[in-house]
Every structure is written in structure tokens, then in C-alpha cells.
Design a protein around this nucleic acid. Structure first.
Lengths: 100, 100
DNA sequence: CGGGATCCAAGGAGATACTG
DNA sequence: CAGTATCTCCTTGGATCCCG
């Protein structure tokens, strides 16, 4: 019954980048592609949480998921062109965070 | 046991603005001061949650809490000068959010 | 190797009653 | 009026096991 606030675009943006790992996932993908297990090892995140985060980022067209039909399986994640537009936004956050 | 990532400044920034209501609290305070009950009525947030959010924002020097020693009690919240530096950051988020 | 399924703990958020 | 205290969900994140 709380008042329905029109959802602010800034809130939509936050809903994408404010999960615990999305920031670091994106950071890893800025200058290279990464495989599922590479992200796990580099970030120290659990499989379940990484999967959830990747799925959410993919649904929002921030990252791309490329499956190589080989044995053993190989999946590479990368930033989409749209995802790259997020970088300066995160830089802004980063700069402000440094003043804390 | 997860790897201790050095906490990114961007993550610190997010920890401040990513709670459900902080964004809207700040938005209300951009152009005016607000009292506790005014925020409750305007935002439709519960007392407990509003209190928690305000306390967190105050601890991080984003908002100022001014108590007027009158009966009945009067408390006004406002953006600090530092808090105002957050506005362009939120604008950036807002703009990016619109492209979603 | 890249997940899916399940279970569990912790914290965020809401509703409500009470107080100086 | 401006909170505090309490109780109850619900959502996130973490750990583990399983499978093609």
C-alpha cells in the first residue's frame, strides 16, 4: 500500500549495478573476455551468485554470452557496446566514492 | 574465505545510494528541507526504514539533521554541501538509466 | 566446464505499537 | 512529532551436490 512512486531511471540503473558482484564482473570485462570459471577464480564468488549476476547483466544487454560448441564446454562473457556506455558512469561513481 | 577484494570506491558509493529509499530522500532534499513526517508522507516509507536510511546518510555526511528544541519536536533534514556533490553523480545514473 | 537445484544464514524492508 | 522496539517477510548471497 506504499505510494507507488514512478520508478526513477536512476533506480533502474542502480538495480543493475548494485548487486554485490556486478561491479566487479563489469570491471573484469572492460579489457578482456572472461570464461565462467575464470570469473569464479578471479572474484571468489560462488557459482550460483555468479550465474544470477551474469544472467541479469545479459538480460539487460550489458554483457554478451558466447557459447563455443566444444568439449569441454566453453563460454565467454564480454561487454556489449551498450555495456561499454556504463564505464564512464561507473567512473563517475568511482570518483565520488574516493571523496568519502 | 572468499577472496578479499580491495573495496572499490565505486562500491562504497553504491553502498550509500543503493538502499531502496536513499535516492528518493536525496531527491526530495535537493531543493528544500524536509521534516521527518513530511518524508514519510511524501515517500510512503515506514518510520523504521526512513530512520535507518536517514541515519546512514547522516553518518556519511550526505545529509544534515537539525533539531529545533520546541514542543512538539521539530527536526529538519537537508543536504550538506558534500551531499550536493552527489547530485551530478545521480544525474549521470539517471541519464544512463533512461537508455535502458 | 558451465551451470541447475537445493538448503541455509543474514540483512533489508514493512507493519504496528509504544514513548519522551 | 520524531523517533525506538519488535516481529515478520522477502531478497541476496554462500555452500554443496549433481549433471550433460
Amino acid at each position: 500500500m506504499s505510494k507507488e512512486l514512478p520508478i526513477c531511471p536512476a533506480e533502474k540503473a542502480l538495480s543493475i549495478i548494485s548487486s554485490k558482484w556486478s561491479l566487479y564482473i563489469i570491471k573484469e570485462l572492460v579489457d578482456k573476455n572472461m570464461r565462467f570459471n575464470e570469473l569464479i577464480k578471479t572474484l571468489g564468488v560462488s557459482q550460483k551468485v555468479l550465474t544470477e549476476n551474469l544472467k541479469k547483466l545479459e538480460e539487460n544487454n550489458v554483457i554478451d554470452r558466447k557459447v563455443f560448441p566444444v568439449i569441454p564446454p566453453k563460454v565467454e562473457y564480454s561487454l556489449t557496446e551498450f555495456g561499454k556506455t556504463l564505464i564512464p558512469v561507473l567512473d563517475t561513481l568511482h570518483e565520488w566514492g574516493e571523496t568519502l
